[in-house]
């Protein structure tokens, strides 16, 4: 589904990603872990097409197509979804209206008929249950006056409505209390299927207690320095990131 080859990315002439290689297939959940400033969020943004980042080398193939040539809205319509770390507020536009516009853009692309107001409200009611969200929140403006936890839940609700093929979760667990984390994680698990894939970017292993990854990658200084199965997350939690850093230095020395 997704193939990242030797991706080099910079922002304001500062290189953040130094050659990322990653392959994600349908049905898989990949966790990207790493300390602050390692480039995790940059990777998420680049996949979504954020204009502030410049790709200076490498390529990304999404369903055999050149992802980097696609505009952000085209990527979204093609099934890429980013759950934002800091979802923005959009005053004056209600959640329901916003989400209906979004889902219909995506349905148009998929050759499906657009939802009318009644069908959409029915769908929305059903999806709010997945994240145990009060449907009344849908009449409020997008994220306006939402608590941190509500915003994160709202992201997963949007994911549920838009049914992406590739969902990128950017620190969706940060700022959530234990109960909210459980609800959000359950929501994510309900959306897992053999047809879609998830890339979960996270600091901690705690989200991964609920959303069990197939692969864990450690990102450090803009490179994936270690990959493994779900047990790698536990190892990291126990030993800290320094342990992998040391290893990567030795590995590099050996190569040299």
């Amino acid at each position: 589904m997704l193939e990242i080859r030797n991706l080099v990315v910079s922002i304001n002439n500062k290189q953040i990603l130094n050659g990322i290689n990653l392959t994600v297939d349908a049905g898989q959940v990949h966790a990207i872990m790493g300390p602050n400033g390692s480039g995790k969020s940059t990777l998420a943004y680049v996949l979504a097409g954020h204009p502030s980042y410049t790709v200076t080398a490498g390529e990304i193939l999404y369903e055999e197509k050149n992802l980097l040539a696609m505009a952000p809205e085209d990527r979204a319509r093609a099934g890429i979804f980013l759950a934002f770390q800091y979802p923005v507020e959009i005053p004056g536009v209600s959640n329901a209206y916003f989400l209906k516009a979004a889902v219909n853009e995506i349905r148009k692309r998929r050759g499906l008929e657009e939802y009318d107001a009644m069908e959409f409200l029915e769908l929305l009611k059903e999806k709010t249950r997945i994240v145990e969200m009060d449907p009344a929140l849908m009449n409020r403006m997008v994220n306006e006056g939402f608590s941190g936890g509500e915003k994160k839940r709202n992201e997963i609700l949007q994911m549920a409505v838009l049914e992406p093929k590739l969902a990128i979760l950017d620190e969706t667990d940060s700022g959530l209390d234990i109960d909210a984390l459980r609800i959000v994680a359950n929501g994510i698990n309900k959306l897992r299927s053999p047809n879609n894939a998830i890339i979960a970017v996270t600091h901690y292993q705690r989200l991964l207690d609920y959303v069990i990854p197939d692969f864990v990658h450690v990102l450090f200084n803009g490179r994936i320095i270690k990959s493994g199965g779900k047990e790698l997350a536990f190892e990291l939690e126990a030993k800290g990131y320094d342990w992998t850093k040391d290893r990567s230095e030795t590995t590099q020395t050996e190569i040299v």
Binding site: G49, A71, R75, I90, G92, V93, Y97, F98, A101
Partner: peptide
Amino acid sequence: FYCKQRGISAENAVSMIVNGF
């Protein structure tokens, strides 16, 4: 960017925000 990431073009996003306003 948030709107675009949800599949809504920049023009529609501006129009949506302005109409809401």
